[in-house]
C-alpha cells in the first residue's frame, strides 16, 4: 500500500526540499512511522515522544482530519493522499 504524503512548507527542509513524498503503510500510524524513519528531522515536528500526534499538527486523509476518523489507526488505501498541515488561526 503506498500513499502520497503532502508536506507543509515548514517541513520540507527536513525532507530534502520535497513538497510530496510516496510512503508505504496501511494506517496513518504506519505511514507516519515510515515517514519519520526516512526523514528523522520531521519527527519532533509531527509526533510527541510517546508517539501521539503533535498538538499543533493536523493530518488529513483525502482532506479529512484523522482526529475525527480513527486517529493513527485510520486506514489508508493505495493512491490515497495524506496531508500534514500546521494548525493555524482562522476568522
Amino acid at each position: 500500500m503506498s500513499v502520497t504524503v503532502r508536506l507543509p512548507t515548514l517541513l520540507r527542509p527536513h525532507a530534502g526540499g520535497e513538497a510530496a513524498v510516496t510512503v508505504a503503510g496501511s494506517t496513518i500510524g504506519e505511514v507516519l512511522n515510515e515517514l519519520v524513519q526516512r526523514y528523522p528531522g520531521v519527527t519532533a515536528q509531527v509526533l510527541n515522544d510517546d508517539g501521539t500526534l503533535h498538538k499543533f499538527v493536523n493530518v488529513y486523509v483525502n482532506d479529512d482530519d484523522v482526529r475525527y476518523l480513527s486517529l493513527l489507526e485510520t486506514p489508508v488505501k493505495d493512491g490515497d493522499e495524506v496531508s500534514i498541515l500546521p494548525a493555524v488561526a482562522g476568522g
Partner: peptide, 20 residues
C-alpha cells in the same frame, strides 16, 4: 476549513501553531 496551513509560510515551526 481552508488549507490555511499550506499558505501560511511565515511559521517557523509547529510550535507557532494555534488552536483557539
Amino acid at each position: 476549513e481552508p488549507p490555511a496551513g499550506e499558505t501560511v509560510d511565515g511559521l517557523r515551526n509547529l510550535d507557532d501553531g494555534y488552536i483557539p
